[in-house]
């Protein structure tokens, strides 16, 4: 693969991965009050997936699972309020105090965002599969991804 020949690029991507995952997670949770949100978080995770593909590192493979989980979560958050008589897509706000973190304000918008995130990551993984590129695993041998 393009970047597998360059140990520097590979190492950089390997090192950047955890940082990017922290950043994505931050964006996901911060989204309600600061810039961020499920879509941006999903794209950051997606960028990680793409970069790791380029570097021939391990990456998620099951686009269908990600998409299915995402759609189920999003639709469940949307439809559950109907069961107790609230309007479709009625979002709940929850405030609790958690040890170490203090007072936390969150709500059913968070799982909705997680669903969105999963779908975005799933789409990117699907796109990568769709490009049907031969990927190379960690040992450097070619594993045909047809």
């Amino acid at each position: 693969m393009i970047a597998t020949r360059s140990p520097i690029v590979r190492l950089a991507i390997q090192t950047a991965t955890p940082i990017a995952i922290v950043l994505g997670t931050y964006l996901l949770f911060a989204g309600h009050n600061r810039p961020g949100g499920g879509f941006a978080a999903g794209l950051v995770f997606g960028a990680v997936v793409v970069l790791r593909t380029i570097a021939g590192l391990q990456r998620p493979r099951h686009a269908d699972t990600l998409i299915a989980v995402g759609v189920v979560i999003a639709v469940a958050v949307a439809a559950l309020p109907v069961l107790w008589g609230d309007p479709f897509l009625d979002m709940k706000i929850v405030e609790t105090t958690v040890p170490l973190l203090g007072k936390i304000k969150t709500g059913s918008a968070l799982p909705f965002d997680i669903g969105v995130m999963a779908i975005v990551v799933g789409l990117i993984v699907a796109l990568l599969d769709g490009l049907s590129l031969p990927t190379v695993d960690d040992t450097g041998t070619e594993a045909g991804a047809a």
Partner: peptide
Amino acid sequence: DVGGGKNVVNVILTD
């Protein structure tokens, strides 16, 4: 009030 968030864009998107 409704969405419980300060990021208007995200509250529009999720609520």
